[in-house]
Design a protein around this nucleic acid. Structure first.
Length: 668
RNA sequence: GCCGAUGUAGCUCAGUCGGUAGAGCAGCUGAUUCGUAAUCAGCAGGUCGUGAGUUCGAAUCUCACCGUCGGCUCCA
């Protein structure tokens, strides 16, 4: 007899050897697809072997959806192999909002193949075959997949840790190595859709063969699937690549180049407001602002280590004219020149990929006493990086961008407090803008890798400082080995865009390496030279990416203080043009960004166009307003707010801008 | 970079079988002078991404290139 207890406290007794299906019968629950026993998921068909707490999993729960999607990926793989027998299977997990399966199939799939695969899947679903699990010995499993010619599965089995139990799932003719669990049978799949095909490298490594990935999604019912597809459509409308040009914020032009953003006047207002905002906090936190050029000699970046470590993601060096002329005169071939470039055996200039070396040189240009520290140098510094062409997109992945960068030169003792100060700044930014959906990632070094500069002792200290600081944040964070920069560990703030992709915004990085590489020092209280520690930090990350994400966050409807046009003054007719201009001028004098719409349109049309342009405030002015030197106030979302004296509106609007309020009309 | 999709007016999109390019919005001009999400009329606007090729004839078919979009470990 096995004693089980449900979540609601109900007790159920089972005979030894009975399964989840028996439990299902006893509880009378319907539409369940899996069982969670003592926190572990298992198939309904599997025998229940231990007492404890159980939970039956339905299709409409997150865990149920994940199982459904994983099972659907098996059905898809089955369909693919029926239609394309030479396709080899690799992995096919459930992912957020769907699933994928990777196949080795060199001819490749076309999007038009998806319909045929879906049709075949329909047959498999209808055939109502069970997902049957069996346990196998490693040798038997290897033999099974070798016979089938499934070399990737063999590789996966061989990589499983010693002593792990190997499970095989069979549904109809399809056999797959899989840890499960699965839905009981294929007919549980009610609503699914194959979304796209893509190339994907085996184990994500470009050096491995490229596989064919098919993405799909599945939901408990058609309604849920339709709702999901609807949500995707809605999200597309908030995409910064659509809204940005639409609202006149930025443009991208082939003739300028891929990944190079042209900020239009309205976008520049947003960028400048953000910079003004952060600059206020920089002053408060004791930063000094500096300016540095866009290029610097190659040697500088060899010293810093950026040239060797990041050469692949840099624009090639700019070489001096004389150097080329001399080499050509010496009879140097193209291949030899390319080689010199490759090895960095050239002198020239690099379009700067990072600002730190120049800030370091500013620090090093003066002698520093311990009394001067921390020295905090900040710059809105523009950098250029050669991102792979396939990874470019909108404002979030570009080749030229401006970081709200700063470098702090601190003593070892000051490090924890300074890291916390940087984190506080990031928090101020996120809070002021109402960004609450983000995660914090502490990037640590990958053990057993030689791609990092510095000693293990320094890394230990730096990693500890980051982890300690992250703990003071009061926000959950994950430590991720392998995500460090070559010179040190870091704390990143990561947000999602409208289509669910993650982007790193703010970052704080600890660095023991560059001070050493540049032989930086300060004089301590003991009158001896000491090595400072550096912190790199950027609360926004880059202005381009941050504004891109912000456009989506606000769906283009920026809070008053950021709105390019804060107040649209709408005249009822030509008769009140003079008053409309007077009102607009009064607002401008008060430092409010105002524009008047004096067109021959009717008031309804003017309101419509100002609303579509996302102007936070609209002022309707006509006979009544002119007579009383008043304005009729309308907000972007709240409609008609009634009339008030012009001066009162200016005061209220000014206060609301100064407070950087997130809601329109909040200070009223 | 690689796999797949895609590119027609400023924007959103139509364009059949290969027969010489169309709408709405935006713009311009005129009329209208109006009270809270679209006043009416007229006009103008295109190297059909670029370049080759096939053809009597190409937006349409073929190839190359360029740009854009989705994806390239969320791990049995």
């Amino acid at each position: 007899m096995i004693e089980l207890k449900g979540k609601a406290g109900e007790a159920v007794q089972l005979e030894a050897g009975q399964s989840g299906f028996d439990l299902l019968k006893k509880t009378g629950a319907k539409g369940m697809i899996a069982l969670k026993l003592n926190g572990k998921l298992q198939d309904l068909a599997a025998a229940i072997t231990e007492p404890g707490e159980f939970e039956l999993i339905g299709l409409k729960t997150p865990e149920g959806e994940e199982i459904l999607r994983h099972s659907t990926s098996h059905i898809m793989a089955d369909a693919v192999q029926k239609l394309f027998p030479s396709a080899k299977v690799t992995i096919g997990p459930a992912i957020e909002n769907g699933f994928y399966y990777d196949f080795d199939y060199p001819p490749g799939f076309k999007e038009e193949d998806l319909a045929a695969i879906e049709a075949k899947m329909k047959e498999i679903v209808k055939s109502d075959v069970r997902f049957a699990r069996s346990e196998m010995k490693r040798e038997d499993a290897v033999k099974l997949f070798e016979q089938k010619g499934e070399k990737y599965k063999v590789e996966l089995i061989n990589d499983l840790p010693e002593g792990s139990v190997i499970f095989i799932y069979q549904s109809g003719d399809f056999v797959d190595l899989c840890r499960g669990p699965h839905i009981p049978s294929t007919r549980y799949v009610k609503a699914y859709k194959l979304v796209s095909v893509a190339g994907a490298y085996w184990r994500g490594n470009e050096k491995n063969p490229q596989l064919q990935r098919i993405y799909g999604t599945a939901f408990a019912d058609q309604e849920a699937l339709d709702a999901y597809l609807q949500r995707l459509e809605e999200a597309k409308k908030r995409d910064h690549r659509r809204l940005g040009p639409q609202l006149g914020l930025f443009t991208l032009d082939d003739a300028v180049g891929s990944g190079l953003v042209l900020w239009k006047p309205k976008g520049t207002i947003i960028r400048n407001e953000l910079q003004k905002f952060i600059s206020e906090h920089l002053r408060r936190q004791g930063y000094s602002q500096v300016c540095t050029p866009h290029i610097g000699r190659l040697g500088l970046y060899k010293t810093s280590g950026h040239y060797p470590y990041y050469r692949e993601s840099q624009f090639p060096p700019i070489i001096e004219k004389d150097f080329f002329a001399d080499k050509v005169a010496e009879g140097c071939t193209c291949a030899q020149l390319a080689n010199l470039m490759e090895n960095g055996e050239i002198d020239g200039y690099l379009l700067k990929p990072m600002n730190c070396p120049m800030h370091i040189k500013i620090f090093a240009s003066d002698h520093h006493s311990y009394r001067d520290l921390p020295v905090r140098l900040a710059e809105f510094g523009t950098v250029y990086r050669w991102e792979k062409s396939g990874e470019l997109g909108g404002m979030t992945r570009v080749r030229g961008f401006t970081q709200d960068d700063a470098h702090l030169f601190v003593t070892e003792d000051q490090l924890p407090a300074e890291i916390e100060g940087c984190l506080e700044l990031v928090k101020i930014v996120l809070t002021t803008l109402g960004i609450s959906e983000y995660r914090v990632r502490v990037g640590l070094r990958e053990p057993d890798s030689n791609k990092y500069a510095g000693t293990p002792e320094q890394w230990d200290k730096a990693e500890k400082a980051c982890l300690d600081a992250a703990k003071t944040l009061g926000v959950a964070f994950t430590a991720e080995p392998g995500d460090a920069v070559f010179y040190g560990p870091k704390i990143d703030f990561v947000v999602k865009d409208v289509i669910g992709r993650e982007w790193q915004l703010g970052t704080v990085q600890v660095d023991y390496q560059l001070p050493q590489r540049f032989d930086l020092s300060y004089t301590g209280a003991d009158n001896k030279p000491h090595r400072p520690v550096m912190i790199h930090r950027a609360p926004f990350g880059s202005m381009e990416r941050f504004v891109g994400v912000l456009i989506e966050h606000f769906a283009g409807a920026f809070p008053l203080w950021l709105s390019p046009v804060q107040v649209a003054v709408l005249s009822i007719s030509e008769k009140f043009e003079a008053y409309a201009v007077e009102v607009t001028d009064a607002l401008k004098i008060a430092g409010i960004r105002a524009e008047s719409d004096l067109s021959a349109e009717k008031i309804g049309a003017k309101i419509r166009s100002a609303t579509l342009a996302k102007a936070p405030y609209m002022l309707v002015v006509g006979q009544r307003e002119q007579a009383e030197r008043a304005v009729s106030v309308r907000t972007r979302t709240g409609g008609d707010q009634g009339s008030m004296p012009l001066e009162a509106f200016i005061k209220r609007c000014g206060e609301e801008i100064a407070s950087r309020s997130l809601t329109i009309g909040s200070s009223a």
